[in-house]
Design a protein around this nucleic acid. Structure first.
Length: 395
DNA sequence: TCTGGGGTCCTAGGACCC
DNA sequence: TCTGGGGTCCTAGGACCC
């Protein structure tokens, strides 16, 4: 059956949302109208561009590049810090507004949604609904969106990426040739920087080239991913709008250190802090983990990781930290300079909600209790109010 | 003052079993 | 006495996304 899909993409989300927030709180300058970027802390070595205004874009500034590079391109650029609380708030406002149009909304990321409007159009057209949504978001929420219209998610997403900002585009199957096949192959969703050079060497430069290439040859070269990208190039995508809330399949935190570290005690301290964050989040989801993964990045930017199974699924900070510490010790080579440390837990499952019986492990009950107390203190007095003793040791 | 942090999915290769 | 082949599970690493 022919489906009616919308893809909604907030224009320069992080920057727009901060602009709206600032205006609402008395700021007179709309940072969307000046050369401005959202960026991380340069001194802490997190100085990359996370979002840019249209004016900044005119200077050739791109998302992901170092801030110092952006400053070179545009010395008068204004740099602002990001704020995820604000982003979440505006993302939720958008979602709430969209719910007035359909229940079938997939929150693809903090600033992107897919809407399945197939059963929600009544007598109206998809175009009219899109116009109304775009207008209402601008008037009621204060920021602009691009909307892509089509009969599947891939095409709707490609459409919303056409000319920006504040625009509606269609990309129906009969428009693929004219609107999509002339684009560079790197513009195709799921086609990243590693794949492009290989395709170029094969003489495939546009999405049209890929669409017309021999499917089996592409599969032979790129495996499953090859099949996907060939189908995408031809506008084929049968995936559903996944509107049901799903718990995460893994939870992780990582941090780029302000300076490289080559001392395992220091790394263990950081690992503990990260593990606390990860397990705190894990418990909020009411999930327990079966495996732990520790990631390191050297100062040369080489990544490596070790993972291992837990004997029993758990969300206990102490148990997960014990495993993480073991993994760190087995993988860390003394003297290596480390730039980034990360912990994640995987193979998650629902925590059993029943009370532990008298006969169950006393130790387990004790650990649960400690975590519970710590979590409620964090909830009540702020995350940093409570920390493990291990973190105080070396201060 | 080079290169964030949160995810998901896939693949190659080794261990182990029958 | 010189070497099978299917299957599963696990890990390390890497691709991609926003």
């Amino acid at each position: 059956m022919d489906r009616k899909i919308l893809h909604i993409d907030v224009n320069n989300a992080f920057l727009s949302w901060l602009a709206v927030y600032k205006l609402k709180n008395g700021e007179t300058v709309d940072i969307r109208t000046i050369p401005a970027i959202i960026g991380g802390d340069e001194e802490a070595r997190k100085g990359i561009v996370l979002a840019k205004s249209m004016k900044a874009k005119e200077f050739g500034i791109v998302t992901g590049e170092p801030i110092y590079q952006a400053k070179r391109k545009c010395p008068q650029i204004q740099v602002f810090k990001g704020n995820f609380e604000i982003y979440r708030e505006y993302s939720n406002k958008l979602y709430k507004l969209l719910l007035e149009y359909t229940d079938k909304i997939e929150r693809f990321s903090i600033d992107e949604c897919f809407l399945d409007m197939t059963e929600y159009l009544m007598k109206d057209t998809l175009e009219n609904k899109a116009k109304e949504i775009k207008r209402r978001v601008k008037e009621e929420l204060g920021f602009t969106v691009n909307i892509g219209l089509s009969s599947n998610k891939l095409l709707a997403k490609m459409a919303s990426d056409f000319e920006k900002p504040d625009k509606i585009h269609t990309l129906y199957p009969n428009e693929i040739q004219n609107k999509m096949w002339n684009l560079k192959v790197s513009e195709l969703f799921m086609l990243g920087r590693k794949t492009v050079p290989t395709l170029y060497n094969m003489g495939i430069k546009t999405i049209g080239d890929l669409a017309k290439a021999d499917r089996n040859l592409i599969i032979k070269k790129f495996g499953k991913h090859g099949n996907l990208m060939w189908e995408y190039a031809n506008g084929i995508d049968n995936s559903e709008v996944n509107y049901k809330y799903e718990k995460p399949k893994g939870v992780g935190n990582s941090i780029t250190l302000p300076m490289d570290v080559c001392n395992i005690e220091k790394l263990e301290e950081i690992l503990l802090e990260l593990t606390e964050q990860v397990t705190y989040r894990l418990r909020k989801y009411e999930l327990i983990a079966n495996s732990v993964n520790v990631q390191l990045r050297t100062k040369e930017f080489k990544d490596f990781s070790h993972q291992g199974k837990l004997d029993v699924a758990t969300s206990s900070t102490k148990q997960i930290y014990a495993k993480a510490k073991k993994l760190l010790e087995e993988m860390y080579k003394e003297g290596t300079f480390i730039r980034l440390v990360g912990v994640r837990v995987d193979n998650l499952e629902e925590k059993e909600r029943r009370q532990l019986s008298l006969f169950e492990d006393n130790e387990k009950k004790k650990l649960d209790k400690i975590d519970k107390v710590m979590d409620s203190l964090k909830d009540k007095y702020g995350y940093d109010s409570i920390i493990y003793a291990g973190r105080l040791k070396k201060k």
